[in-house]
Nucleic acid binder design. Structure first.
Lengths: 261, 261
DNA sequence: TTGGTTTTGATTCAAAATGACTGAAATCAG
DNA sequence: CTGATTTCAGTCATTTTGAATCAAAACCAA
């Protein structure tokens, strides 16, 4: 059997069943375990499936979203979130996109006096009972995996609001700009950028060089980036050229040797 | 069974039932006690559940009063909610207003194949990961105590949707019609009525004769009422005159003497 | 054919997950 | 209050899974 045929069959089976065990694939395809592993590795790198222990899942499946939810925010993410929260002034109107990093930012906004606009159910849930925060939710079709509202209704709602600052994460950053995995999401995020004065991007260093399905925007649309110090020199130059101001937090790697803290 | 699937199932069961015993999970999942403990530990660390002695329950502030309110949901409310859920056909587009009774209705819709439109964060949270339910959230200013979206943005969003059925609670019912305590809420609810084909009101018998701050609508705008048998004869006549069809569930009072159940 | 590359499958070792067991702590019954 | 029971955290051996390595097979071009 040819490589491409085998891989497309894996893809098809994963899409149909949402989740598939490695051993099942070995039997179904008649290939060795090593080969199937390599196929999964390749498909995962291409972003077409999501590898999990013991098999693979389809990115759109409900059972798969679990990984994303489970993943504890890394130390970098938390640091980035803290710094980002510090950049926000009391009284601002902040537009918060969905995502794990922005959720961390929201955690750091509790007790602050702000107006928050968001399309993320988890963030709304978190901030809904904060007495000092006036919360406006952007409605729309709720994407099951992440709990963010998308689509036409979301875009139209966003057209009616205006924020002084947008906090957004991203799937990947390359020379060509920002990327995200979902085209519906990208459409909504474009309107977010249009509805805000200042665009603050939050992205840990692992996002650089990553490319995802849909192109979101050019790099120069970003006003400000909060990232960790693991970022490569090449990207610093590129960001500088695109007129993006950089806020950098120490990575765990550079700080751990310093103290017991 | 694989790790993610197991944890995902734990999460689902906890979400649906509010609280779940460790032993129940051991039996349901066919895993060892140690494994389930580790799963609970991991999920707790991620903030997705809250461990308690003997099992796990929902995390978060909002969830907590959620559960508290749920436990307060009287037997009547639960019966009314069950019956209301039975009235809804698969494939319908249901508009669900906020409130404790409608939240109970939402609990009874899990696993159904429906399109649900709501402006209530607790309901959205509950239904967001139901694979068979397509969820549309109506955005707006989020009212802190109850987590419902209100105001101009909500009204405009509602103008853009259309539902075959509206499920709504109320603060009080008198000869003059329906009432609610919040005028922003009433404004939004009026648009809900306008955007739906059929108006199903859910209200236990204690609501009759109660009058609240803001007048919502006339009685004859209601198509269908689900209530308990504690309702007075006077009101039955009035509802009949207003052309409201009545679905009645047995109250605890009339049923308790029957059996040990 | 020959020499080189790519793909595949088997093997090996490390990491992770699991289940059974232990003693400690919390809870309950009397 | 005391003893019994339940629940829990930690340890350890076993099993499963995954990454790396290496040799064989298939493929390709000359």
């Amino acid at each position: 059997m040819l490589v491409d045929e085998r891989r497309s069959r894996i893809l098809k089976m994963t899409e149909e069943q949402g989740f598939i065990a490695l051993q099942t694939l070995v039997t179904a395809l008649g290939a060795s375990e090593s080969t199937v592993r390599r196929d999964l590795e390749s498909l995962d790198a291409a972003g077409l499936i999501q590898r999990t222990r013991g098999g693979a899942s389809f990115p759109g499946d409900a059972r798969a979203d679990f990984d994303a939810r489970r993943s504890l925010a890394s130390v970098e993410k938390q640091r980035i979130a803290q710094r980002t929260a510090q950049l926000i002034h009391d009284g601002e109107t902040v537009l918060l996109d969905g995502g794990t990093t922005t959720l961390e930012v929201a955690r750091n906004l509790t007790g602050r006096s702000l107006q928050v606009v968001t399309n993320s159910l988890p963030i709304a849930q978190l901030l809904m009972n904060q007495p000092e925060i006036e919360l406006i939710f952007i409605g729309g079709f709720v994407y099951p995996k992440t709990g963010v509202a998308l689509g036409q209704l979301a875009v139209e709602s966003l057209q009616r609001v205006h924020a002084t600052r947008l906090i957004m994460g991203t799937g990947g950053i390359t020379d060509d700009g920002l990327f995200n995995s979902n085209s519906l999401l990208v459409e909504t995020e474009r309107q977010m950028i249009a509805s805000s004065d200042r665009f603050t991007l939050v992205a840990d260093s692992s996002k650089f060089g990553q490319r995802a399905l849909s192109h979101l925007c050019e790099l120069r649309e970003v006003d400000e980036l909060v990232t960790d110090s693991g970022i490569d020199c090449h990207w610093k130059q590129m960001l500088h050229a695109a007129d993006v101001s950089i806020e950098m937090v120490e990575t765990a790697a550079t700080e751990q040797p310093l103290a017991g803290q």
